[in-house]
Design a protein around this nucleic acid. Structure first.
Lengths: 233, 233
DNA sequence: TGACATTAGTCGCATTTGGTGACTTATTCG
DNA sequence: CGAATAAGTCACCAAATGCGACTAATGTCA
């Protein structure tokens, strides 16, 4: 059997397009999530919109590329950038590259309006047709947000350093795409020791003023659970 | 601002090594998980072992590449192959490529002994030093197994079509790396309607014979839960 | 044969977690 | 003042979970 080095030395000279880095930029708009798309000019294809993407470069890590692509498309830096996955099935992509790495970027509400007519926000359940590979990336990014929300404090990245619990709950509702019960949300939140009250209160006009909190995760509660079998088909 | 096509048309002629596809092959051995490594010959570097990998090809999807690389390293097809993530930070890799896609492959217990001296199984908490990027991939693959176990029936892929509930629990314990309580495990399993009893029983020598079950997921129980805040730092 | 070891499988209870409606509190508006 | 509005809390019930102890069926060995 060949040794490792002979098996994998393959630096074949196949000239192929470099992988692309594609970014799914998401922001809360109204009470829904929206995704940033760019208009594709030129080609006669039916798809007129695409996720921001760019061919991979040699002088950056892919995370740096993703952050830069997001910043360029948006005009300012997003609040969070995380990898979703690599997409290298045969599906079609605006590029000729066989491989794309999808990133997820979250932007706080009230993001600056997209620059010019080449860029626009689309509500998540009303996106125009995309190249199949980019459609997969969008679906994957949404799925990633919703599952990571449970184990990672990404929701807090969409809020200022101090915020009300209603603000926080609203972010969760938008990211999850469903309503949550107020009392249950707060009970779980306090049990997790993730937030700490400040001595400030915010009055939004009508209604009782809300106390401001800050993200301040305490201690570690490694809960050593049993197994769960959820939604397996 | 430049339009989409002018922004991303970049098909720069930078000649760079193709991305690699790396496979983390895992199998239950004894009561632990082991990972398959290949001996690296030649170079004077201190790392003598590596995950199986190969440069990406133009004639396959990355999933196909991963399955083939796993099959070549193992001598037979693994029971499951799934993507973990792309690794494109600057860390060192046996190749000169800046980008690697990591895959996870699971192999049923009793896998054929690795072929020759170039390949060996290592208990996962006793792996030799690896290139930093491959070490990250191994960690990522283990984390992926443990989190996907909850939402995906990957454990069943490591068992024959009929199996005892003790067999199944043992697989879960090995993959999770911790013991589970028998009664709780069975209660949760039955509540999820994932298995169906057959009319066969297996006697392992001593002890009461065990009923054989088959994987047969029924219905869907979309449980509409609230939020959970788990293990956020 | 009968005590014992071994493994499978179940039960019941205490505790925790989670869903939910209704309640109290504090504020603005008219 | 009273209605409207939003924040924050409570109490109750249901479901899920942890866990020890029990029963059941088999082989082993004196």
């Amino acid at each position: 059997m060949p040794t490792r080095s002979s098996v994998s030395a393959g630096r074949t000279s196949t000239r192929r397009a470099a992988p692309t880095v594609d970014v799914v930029l998401l922001t809360p708009q109204g009470r829904r999530l929206s995704v940033l798309l760019q208009r594709v000019e030129g080609a006669k294809s039916k798809e007129r919109w695409a996720l921001p993407w760019e061919a991979m470069r040699g002088d950056e890590t892919i995370e740096e590329s993703a952050a830069r692509i997001a910043r360029d498309a948006l005009g300012s830096a997003p609040n969070l950038v995380e990898q979703v996955a690599a997409y290298g099935d045969g599906r079609r992509h605006p590029s000729s590259s066989p491989l794309s790495i999808a990133f997820l970027a979250l932007v706080a509400a009230g993001a600056p309006a997209p620059v010019g007519g080449a860029t626009a926000w689309f509500a998540i359940d009303d996106v125009p047709p995309l190249a199949p590979r980019q459609k997969s990336m969008l679906d994957g990014a949404l799925h990633a947000v919703r599952t990571r929300l449970e184990h990672s404090p990404i929701a807090f990245r969409l809020l200022p350093t101090t915020f009300t619990l209603s603000d926080l709950q609203e972010i969760y509702e938008i990211l999850l795409g469903r309503r949550l019960h107020k009392a249950s949300f707060r009970r779980a939140l306090h049990a997790a020791w993730l937030v700490e009250p400040t001595d400030e209160w915010r009055s939004e006009g009508r209604g009782r003023p809300a106390q401001l909190f800050r993200y301040s995760p305490k201690k570690r509660r490694s809960s050593r659970r049993g197994v769960r079998f959820e939604g397996m088909e």
